[in-house]
Amino acid sequence: MEDIEHIPKELKLIDENGVRLDGRRFDELRPIRIEAGVLGRADGSAYVEWGGNKVLAAVYGPREAHPRHLQDPARALVQCRYNMAPFSVSDRKRPGPDRRSVEISKVISEAFSSVIFKEQFPRTSVDIFIEVLQADAGTRCAGLTAAAVAIADAGVPMKDLVTSCASGKIGGVVCLDLNKDEDNFGEADCPMAIVPRTGEIVLLQMDGHLTYDEFQKAMGLSIDAAKRIYDLQRDALRRRYSTTVDEILREAAAAPAPSPAPAEVAFDSQLDDLGREGSP
């Protein structure tokens, strides 16, 4: 974003009809697919495909915090490591943390700190690992969205899921969910994360150039989109755990003395119990 001059003249990020390079309108998200419980060893995990982004999240804990001097006698630590695979970007990224990923790790752990019931697990650590396998702009939002599902999958009690999304400005138009080209050649990017049930904003960053009006438009788009992403997150968890319920029902049906199966499984009540499912 630091250099506008070298943008190829023919590259128009959004045309007269308001259609973007990938055919989206200003308020459209890229296709998002979320899957919960994709890894064997981790206490919780999730996989998110978001446009060209492919992101894995794993959660361990609450487990004993190491090194010990970091332990907090009153609550759990929430630690996050956001990492990009060397092959996830077009020019190979040197392995290991750089300054950007240190910052992103910090703001993501702070975002989850406000929703996890840390006081229930003194001296422990909830460790969140986010691996970007393929990057297409908006990786921190995809990673955060995946991590929220992974934390729920791990059964770590929290106020609500956290949902993340970015809006920015391309060709003078405020747009939702910028892709790689739009992010590189656009004028601003503003990622945020929100607790959908309470409306609390737990992550907010911005770079570029937005008037106050444009900022409010961008936030409006993101807040609206977060509701849709929240549904996808909940749906992923529902799918993950409804399979288990099906299996139980099948087993019950196969049992020699079948007890009458409940006529209808109330999925919502199953969801409420999710917090306890995989609890360590």
Binding site: I201, Q205, D207
Partner: peptide, 24 residues
């Protein structure tokens, strides 16, 4: 011009959207 060029939220608490607007 009063335009926003950068923002960063920090620490483990949160802001409501109204509070964000007041901060700006």
């Amino acid at each position: 011009n009063g335009d926003i060029r950068a923002m960063q939220k920090g620490l483990s608490g949160s802001f409501s959207y109204d509070e964000v607007k007041r901060v700006i």
